[in-house]
Design a protein around this nucleic acid. Sequence first.
DNA 1: CAGAAAATGGACCGGCAAGTCCACCCCGGG
DNA 2: CCCGGGGTGGACTTGCCGGTCCATTTTCTG
Lengths: 204, 204
Amino acid sequence: MTQAATAKGRATRARIVEGAAEVLRERGVAFTTLDDIRDRTGTSKSQLFHYFPDGKDELLLSVARFEADRVLEDQQPQLGRLDSWESWAQWRDLVVERYERQGDQCPLGSLFLQVGRSRPGSRAIVTELMRQWQQQLADGMRALQARGLVAASLDVGQASAALLAGIQGGVAIMMSTGDSTHLKAALDAGIAALRATRDAPDPG
Amino acid sequence: MTQAATAKGRATRARIVEGAAEVLRERGVAFTTLDDIRDRTGTSKSQLFHYFPDGKDELLLSVARFEADRVLEDQQPQLGRLDSWESWAQWRDLVVERYERQGDQCPLGSLFLQVGRSRPGSRAIVTELMRQWQQQLADGMRALQARGLVAASLDVGQASAALLAGIQGGVAIMMSTGDSTHLKAALDAGIAALRATRDAPDPG
DNA sequence: CAGAAAATGGACCGGCAAGTCCACCCCGGG
DNA sequence: CCCGGGGTGGACTTGCCGGTCCATTTTCTG
């Protein structure tokens, strides 16, 4: 039963997912038990298994979906409207701010470790998130091209892939070291690469 | 007792670390037990605790150190001699090849999940690995500068940080999606950015 | 206001895996 | 030869935690 039948049921299910997401962010997947989630969400063991019959894995997968959705939502509306240098700059700051606030928690990354990267469900979630994210970056780059701010010859697919990789890596490094230098460098380098398609390079 | 007293002891300890690293890569941290490691290494429970008195965490940390060392070793000698476009290209291929061969295993990443990113020991390992890696990239960029292949005005610190982030992210994405496109894009973009400091941009 | 279906509470079970313990082995030195 | 200590084997303990079960309450429907 993935969908609850009544409004109350749906509310409870949502409460479980959101509460579980909180606990997981705080404690980390490896150290979170169903009892922790039960406590936080004010539910009982039977409810957990009522709404997630396949047990912990199913619940974790639902949390992963929930977190994946948040990732892109948290970057809106900037990410959806990257049609000027100003909006790119704003988005860049937003990303840095979001992840610095998040600190060393990587709900999504850790979630898949536990469930298993290769499991059909989990891989689909990341793949889809990456696809959408890159898509929006690519849209932004094409918007710049349309306005003549970026050379039409730019390989948008490659540039957006590289920028996305830089973000992921920057975040990953920040998780481990607590330092956001790399994230900022990756964002700035990615945007600078766009600019460089029009500007003259340093002639030195 | 972190160091064994006799040669035999030291050999056993090394066998444990290497064997554990193998098992962890195959099964993943979350699904590996001390008994798995015991089987693989042909040792007994008491030996595990004899050489790693603090238990599983201490062992995992040792494996993390072991794996961290491998990361840079596997990129040698190319990584240590990035003084021409050819050597950069060779290194780029080496990185792609190494991680494609590794597939969806990320021994290091997962290890820290289990031990806890923030634990003093584990954070130090990643930080040091990142520092050395970036250092070697930066050295390579300066070598290009010295030969006049890259503009002296290039901010090596920022460029190396961005490239490192791109690699990390590219690898991370490949782990989750099985696709090395992003890794290649990040590497190529990073190197192209170096070239672009000298070449004229596409005038389109 | 039934009666069914959904939702909830929480005691209980069972297995697994980390960690303990002690007996034994092996080898080098005196 | 024996003795001491590092090295080894593996049975055993222990606690945790995912998962089960059933009794009870609440909510929908006619």
